[in-house]
Design a protein around this nucleic acid. Structure first.
Lengths: 215, 215
DNA sequence: TGCCATAGGATTGGATCCAATTTCAAGCTT
DNA sequence: AAGCTTGAAATTGGATCCAATCCTATGGCA
């Protein structure tokens, strides 16, 4: 419940989101404790915390693992995002000022300048989460973050496979979202966000190899 | 992460959902530990767990409290439910067999037979959660449960205030949901569920006194 | 009299130790 | 040779103890 727990949770979260830990990997309490110079107790609490975020699976007496998601699970998570992120955007938009929107433009400029897989994932994540940053409803923003986090691994695998081929579409969608936000039109912006997610979901469905499933 | 933690979490969850603990109430580790004959350690883990479910708020060095929600927060949570529960129902319906649907009918019969506030809340909750019971997507069903749990207190307050006046509408909606499910029409069923939630959300909006806010 | 400082108790946070469970491999039986 | 049993090592779960932080009430000072 404290600073140590938070520190460890952040470390593990970064490790999972950054790809150092992948689906199915086991996380031993002692290893983490030693690595971060703490006792096992805050590690246990951090794991409990991450379990609540869906980033860790905790089985009694068997330890913690990074969950493995099926293609169908990811598909449904994307459908959830299609439904929820327009809501988050509508809650957020009135709280954002123009400087936030300029920052969005900057991020998109940087995305279009081109980078590697890791760089794109970072920028894309920052872009979208910034559009929701004004959402003050804990339940909603926590849920959106959860959904983003638990699919990060598969997003990385997908971007790696599909390469830069579809970037033109992504960029157009991002520009439309920014434009609608400058116009303070949360209906339009929500539509574009939802479409953006839906298109990605469908393209993901064409790559079952990302999930180690049969084509 | 174990049986003791689960036991304590279940106890606290029941206490919050049952109304023994209300918004703003503090939860002291030692009290719970003594009351359940355990040490503080599993209590801490249970609190961590419940924090992940949104049933507890944990502030470093200050302890745990039951969160207090504003009217706007509850309104947004209901909007989330409008978006998510049709999805959960669509995932669930193919997995439910006719015996489940007969059970739904029984529950609705019992609701129409009439009972007190506590009884209605229990039955209504069991009814709706049973319609989602077939949903195998952890993220989706966990989210739906979270949203239900964290608004249970305000649902109780609302039912207490509004009394049995609107029961005719509730019953009609439930019957329509059951009928659509028997027809295996998840589109129709989802529409009715969404409408059911939406109507409740709007009626809740007419009772700001539930949230201790100015009318 | 009102306000600030401080000390004491209460409560939470973290570490170490011991117990319980699981895992895995070696050896025995068939 | 295959499968079951057994036991030891590894890992997780729980309890107790001590440290750190917060809360509150008391007393001093302006």
């Amino acid at each position: 419940m404290t600073v140590a727990t938070q520190r460890i949770a952040t470390h593990l979260r970064d490790a999972i989101l950054g790809g150092a830990l992948g689906p199915g990997d086991r996380v031993r309490q002692e290893d983490v404790a030693q690595q971060l110079g703490a006792s096992r107790l805050p590690v246990r609490e951090a794991l409990q915390m991450l379990a609540g975020e869906g980033l860790i699976e905790n089985e009694p007496n068997k330890g913690a693992r990074v969950p493995r998601l099926s293609m169908h699970e990811v598909d449904v998570i994307y459908r959830m995002r299609e439904q929820l992120e327009p809501l988050a955007l509508a809650e957020s938009l009135p709280e954002l000022d123009d400087s936030d929107l300029y920052r969005l433009t900057e991020l998109q400029d940087e995305i279009e300048r081109g980078t590697d897989v890791h760089g794109f994932l970072e920028l894309d994540r920052e872009f979208h989460l910034l559009t929701y940053a004004g959402c003050k409803i804990e339940h909603l923003s926590a849920t959106v973050h959860r959904l983003w986090n638990s699919t990060q691994y598969y997003r990385r695998a997908f971007v790696r496979i599909s390469g830069p081929s579809r970037m033109r579409v992504v960029n157009a969608e991002h520009r439309l979202i920014i434009d609608a936000m400058f116009r303070r039109d949360e209906i339009d912006a929500g539509r574009f966000v939802s479409g953006h997610i839906r298109r990605t979901r469908i393209e993901l469905g064409n790559h079952p190899e990302v999930f180690g499933e049969k084509a």
